[in-house]
Simulated assay, not measured.
Amino acid sequence: MASVNFMVLPGVYAPQEDTALLTGALSDESLPPAASVLDVGTGTGALAVAAARRGARVTAVDVSWRAVCAARVNAARSGVRIRVRHGNLFTPVRGETFDLVLANPPYVPAPAGGRRPRGAARAWDAGHDGRMVLDRICREAPALLRPGGVLLLVQSALSDPERTVGHLREAGLKAAVTRRRRIAFGPVVRGRERWLRQRGLLSLAENEEELVVVRAEQPV
């Protein structure tokens, strides 16, 4: 990922620590030949490019037209072929199945949790508990996985990874947290740090955010 100078358009989520953490999890996966991979919420296309470089047939989806444009340009600049679709989460790939689904969804709890985020905030604001999109992924992703297929999802500890694992297990998948990384607060978390502490999502002693990767596998 670091070797590519990705184009980042205004309002498109730039590759950050969560992208790097998920890229590392992707590198651990042994993909079948010509694997079919879905990168949902692709942003600049960084994860989609990483998968395509391994010979996968990649579909990337984003609700932002600017992200769709950025992903297409970055794929071309990286010398890989990626099918990029505009749409809300899994809607553009209804009826398709994949060997691997990658997801870096919005996951930061937001004070104005009842309102749909707009503009760039769509990349991080995820309702009062941070699970506006996570719960939908837990409901809908299992149907997109082929037997033996894998979902790799990155989220913050602020939005209850154990709930994610529980929902995926209830759907019949083998699920667990496989990677963790603590990072300094970014501008979004810093801007609502007091609110997060008041809600008990951050303790008074915490001065870092924990990111995790959840891996879930469809039984064969």
Rank of each mutant, 00 (worst) to 15 (best):
A71K: 00
F185Q: 11
R53Q: 13
G79A: 12
E217K: 09
A216F: 04
S3Q: 01
L202K: 07
P187D: 14
G200S: 07
H128Q: 08
V150N: 07
P219K: 14
G114Q: 10
L168I: 03
G55W: 00
A110F: 14
R83N: 14
P32D: 10
D129V: 03
G200A: 08
S30L: 13
V189I: 15
L144D: 13
E210I: 06
R190Y: 03
D28G: 00
P15F: 01
G43N: 08
P161Q: 06
G79Y: 04
W124F: 14
E29M: 07
D18K: 02
V58W: 04
L38K: 10
M132G: 12
L201M: 12
V73M: 08
S27W: 08
L204E: 15
A126T: 09
A75Y: 04
A35L: 05
R180T: 07
R136W: 13
L152H: 05
A141F: 04
S30F: 00
V212A: 01
E162V: 00
V93H: 12
R190Q: 15
V80D: 12
G127D: 13
P187M: 13
R53T: 02
A70H: 02
T59R: 06
S27M: 10
Y107G: 09
A35H: 05
V108I: 15
P92L: 11
C138H: 04
R66T: 07
R146W: 00
A50I: 00
N74Y: 02
F185C: 08
S36G: 10
I183Q: 05
G186Y: 05
R179C: 02
Q16G: 12
D129R: 10
R131W: 04
T44C: 06
A126W: 06
V213W: 03
A2G: 00
G43S: 11
V8M: 01
R136D: 15
P109K: 08
P142G: 10
A103N: 11
G127Y: 11
G45V: 05
A143P: 02
L202N: 08
P161F: 01
L201W: 06
E96V: 01
Q155P: 01
R136I: 13
G119N: 09
H128F: 08
N74V: 04
F90S: 14
F98D: 14
A70G: 04
L211E: 07
A50M: 06
L102N: 10
D39I: 00
R180E: 13
E17N: 01
D160V: 02
R179S: 04
S156P: 02
A112T: 10
A216L: 12
G113Q: 07
L21D: 01
V133P: 07
T42L: 09
G45P: 03
A14F: 00
L211H: 03
Y107N: 09
P187H: 10
L38S: 08
T59P: 04
V8T: 08
P161H: 01
A25W: 02
G127N: 12
H128V: 15
C138Q: 07
F6W: 13
R115Q: 15
G43L: 07
A143K: 10
R180G: 01
N5P: 00
L204Q: 11
R72D: 10
G11L: 06
E208N: 03
L173A: 09
R122Y: 02
A171W: 03
A184Q: 11
H128M: 04
D129K: 03
L100W: 07
Q155E: 14
V220W: 15
G79F: 09
L201R: 06
P117F: 13
A141W: 04
P111M: 11
A14K: 09
V188P: 01
Q218C: 15
V61A: 12
L151N: 09
A25C: 02
